[in-house]
Amino acid sequence: MTTSNMEARTQSLLSELNFDKGGFFDLGHPLLNRIAESFIKAAGIGAIQAVSREAYFTAVEGTGLDSSNGVPEIPGAKKHRFPELRGETNRNSLEAMVKSTGKESLQWGLAAGVYSGLTYGLKETRGAHDWKNSAVAGAITGVALALTADDTSHEQIVQCAITGAAISTAANLLSGIF
């Protein structure tokens, strides 16, 4: 691929995304714009959260803090969400970090995109933005998140749906108070 061909493709992509409209880009429909913007913002937050969590646990391991030093451990808590980060070489550790960060970013972005798209779609369909829209969107988002986890059971899916609906509804109801 020549440099001029690459530049032409880049310009074509930038003109399609159109960064000048106040948001990240314009995909031609407000629903698509909202989903994409929510996905990108939350995916970035997810990546930062995954890297910072792993850095924290790496630092704690390096200092030798554990229950023998007087710092109590939380029973049943996972020290590392991504145990494969313990590679034999720096390259293996870096590859595992990139893979795990990408997975976490995708999960956060999925949650934000699904929730944002559903609340917008329900508002447009029903003509109202109320706690019912939030409850449905939260429940479906909870199910989507549960399905991205490893070894998901039926009970976990139901729990995530109920939790998503409850948190979303509470946030909607409390948003008018604060």
Results as ranks from 00 to 15, higher is better:
119 T>V: 14
90 N>Q: 12
124 E>G: 08
92 N>I: 03
108 W>G: 04
81 R>A: 14
122 L>C: 00
129 H>C: 05
115 Y>K: 12
109 G>Q: 11
91 R>I: 15
79 K>D: 00
117 G>Q: 00
119 T>N: 07
100 S>T: 11
104 E>C: 13
116 S>Q: 07
99 K>G: 05
88 E>I: 03
92 N>V: 07
103 K>N: 14
85 L>N: 08
91 R>V: 15
111 A>M: 07
131 W>E: 15
100 S>E: 14
129 H>T: 10
78 K>M: 10
107 Q>P: 06
113 G>N: 12
102 G>A: 06
107 Q>C: 02
121 G>H: 06
76 G>T: 02
131 W>M: 06
130 D>V: 03
83 P>Y: 11
115 Y>T: 09
129 H>Y: 13
116 S>E: 08
130 D>T: 05
79 K>L: 02
126 R>M: 11
131 W>G: 03
101 T>F: 02
90 N>P: 04
118 L>K: 09
109 G>L: 00
87 G>F: 09
81 R>E: 14
126 R>N: 08
102 G>W: 03
107 Q>W: 04
127 G>Q: 07
93 S>I: 00
96 A>V: 02
113 G>T: 11
123 K>I: 04
101 T>P: 05
74 I>M: 11
77 A>K: 14
136 V>A: 15
125 T>P: 04
96 A>F: 01
111 A>L: 13
130 D>Y: 04
85 L>W: 05
79 K>S: 01
132 K>C: 03
122 L>N: 05
118 L>N: 01
77 A>G: 06
106 L>P: 07
88 E>G: 15
127 G>R: 11
117 G>C: 04
113 G>C: 12
126 R>Y: 12
108 W>D: 03
130 D>P: 03
97 M>Q: 13
92 N>S: 09
103 K>D: 08
84 E>M: 00
74 I>Q: 06
86 R>K: 15
95 E>P: 02
92 N>A: 15
107 Q>L: 09
99 K>C: 02
80 H>F: 14
122 L>E: 07
78 K>S: 09
81 R>N: 12
98 V>N: 03
81 R>P: 08
123 K>Y: 04
102 G>C: 01
105 S>D: 00
76 G>W: 12
78 K>N: 09
116 S>M: 10
94 L>H: 05
80 H>N: 06
79 K>A: 10
76 G>P: 05
84 E>P: 01
96 A>I: 00
81 R>W: 13
103 K>V: 14
134 S>L: 05
87 G>S: 05
113 G>F: 07
103 K>R: 13
81 R>G: 14
